[in-house]
Design a protein around this nucleic acid. Sequence first.
DNA 1: ATAATAGGCAAGTAATTACTTGCATGTCAA
DNA 2: TTGACATGCAAGTAATTACTTGCCTATTAT
Lengths: 107, 107
Amino acid sequence: MSDADLLFKALADKGRRKLLDRLYAQDSQTLSELCRHLAMTRQGVTQHLAVLEAASLVAVQRRGREKLHFLNPVPLQQIYDRWIYKFEKPRLKALSSLKRRLEGGQG
Amino acid sequence: MSDADLLFKALADKGRRKLLDRLYAQDSQTLSELCRHLAMTRQGVTQHLAVLEAASLVAVQRRGREKLHFLNPVPLQQIYDRWIYKFEKPRLKALSSLKRRLEGGQG
DNA sequence: ATAATAGGCAAGTAATTACTTGCATGTCAA
DNA sequence: TTGACATGCAAGTAATTACTTGCCTATTAT
């Protein structure tokens, strides 16, 4: 499975996106802490986190019996480059050339 | 199913992303044209396109017996706002404050 | 030492998703 | 008008994914 595939698959689940949001609100949470806000068993959360880890969206660090989770936004940049910027570019170019034309430039 | 969910689910499949790429390379293709480049039956492609349409990533227009497909990049902007910009912002801020500090400003 | 806490592993089930086959309909060209 | 072409619809199967239950291990606190 390619990086991009892991990434999109990871983002394709509401529960996993919610986990990312929880980590955005407060980074470095343990598994149990994260469980508190999800209507799901601990195992469910564990499995979702594993998917997020596989996509490198979440990094972990062990502290004694606890497992701390950290948000890693870097892979999202990859999505931006490959899927947002690329697809928006033509539209943005069209808009800015329209803008220049309206302003009396040579478009 | 929320807009965001439709969108992420739509992007979570390699075949569908390939379809978007084909439409990026050349817009306004018919179903049969799109089929030529995918190792899949026409029905498979039809169903993937339906998912992309549900997510508003692809718009269609009928011309006689043909169905033309158009790429709509707008929903991608939504992903950028909600999932890329938001999550990158703290990192970008940290980078630019580091940059200012290195340049001798007040960070 | 022992009880409570934090988490891991594995198997099983339910639900969803991807893909196919077969047939039907509408459109166009000869 | 008939044959080829473009697409639609529906049911069925295979594959994947989400989620749960039950039990096990390691760490911490009393």
